[in-house]
Amino acid sequence: MEYEEAKEKLVAALQKKQKTKSKFYFNDLAKILEAKPRDAKKVINRMVQEQVLEYWSSGSTSLYGLHGTGKQAAAEHED
């Protein structure tokens, strides 16, 4: 899958879930992309660089979300 196509697919899937969920495990994203983790990582890293996605970390676990979405973004005054 080309990068732009993968990006579109991921953004659409995450936007669809926005009402109930704003943060996702890496594996959830890889499943949406239907890609092996190493291939999914290349797409996801690029999307983070482009600020389409952003990291969320508890310190022990990392999650991903669409940039500026979710309660946390509002609470951190970064949306």
Binding site: V48, Y55, W56, S57, S58, S62, G65, A73, A75, E76
Partner: peptide, 20 residues
């Protein structure tokens, strides 16, 4: 303390742990 955060340095997904 709240749980975690989105803060970090650009391009890194680790090394910074948000605490509020």
């Amino acid at each position: 303390w709240k749980h975690g955060g989105i803060v970090g340095v650009f391009g890194y997904g680790g090394g910074v742990i948000g605490r509020y």
